[in-house]
């Protein structure tokens, strides 16, 4: 009986308690998810170094939340299960050190990196797949940051879209056909059609803030 109660208390503490307060601006991720994504993002993309901006500083958490919100309910569950799994898998694949069984977010940065490295280098294909899935979510979020892409020289270029017949037929998604603003005359508007200059101006969303 006592053992059962002790186990229940331990499970409650491990699973639910001690997480920082949830950021209410984020719609999808729970307090635990948010803590995990923040910790994992900084383990994969730590502060400083060649690309100075860290995973957390790059707004990874907000991007992941937005991404999860855009998914189907089933995909949302799968992504959150992935976070849950890695948060608690230290029970079976502990971090180095006597305290390596703690949940992922309670580990030191060095331990977190070691845990993820262990998943990524595992001889078990399924563990590598789990790591790659997490890495995919975090990497795509990190790369959504314009500063990151600018630093890498990979920010998208400015491109003006010419008006074609289809633009007179389809409104932007979710709007009625009366929202179609293009007219037949717009098709004649002169838009550059020459090869882009790789050193040309960036898309406005990726430009350095003035």
């Amino acid at each position: 009986m006592l053992v059962g109660i002790a186990l229940a208390v331990w499970a409650l503490v491990r699973l639910a308690l001690g997480y920082p307060r949830r950021d209410p601006a984020l719609r999808q991720l729970s307090a635990r998810d948010q803590a995990f994504v923040r910790a994992a993002a900084d383990a994969v993309f730590p502060p400083g170094g060649a690309l100075a901006i860290s995973g957390a500083e790059a707004g990874t958490l907000a991007h992941v939340d937005r991404y999860v919100a855009s998914l189907s309910p089933r995909s949302r569950v799968l992504i959150r299960l992935l976070f849950f799994l890695l948060e608690h898998a230290t029970l079976f694949f502990p971090a180095p050190g006597w305290d390596g069984f703690r949940r992922f977010t309670s580990l030191t940065p060095a331990q977190r990196a070691a845990v993820l490295e262990g998943w990524g280098r595992s001889p078990l294909a399924v563990r590598r797949t789990v790591f790659q899935s997490l890495r995919a979510v975090l990497t795509m979020a990190y790369f959504a940051n314009p500063t990151v892409l600018r630093a890498m020289g990979l920010a998208p270029l400015a491109i003006e879209s010419p008006v074609v017949d289809a633009d007179l037929l389809y409104p932007p998604i979710g709007q009625p056909r009366s929202a179609v603003r293009a007219t037949p005359a717009d098709r004649e508007r002169c838009v550059p059609r020459t090869p882009l200059d790789p050193h040309g101006p960036l898309d406005p969303a990726y430009r350095e803030p003035a």
Partner: peptide, 21 residues
Amino acid sequence: PPGVLAVRMPGLGHPLKQALL
């Protein structure tokens, strides 16, 4: 998209960030 391609880069931490450059 670079973020999709970067998914296949190995490792993590500072070596990964160096590789991204």
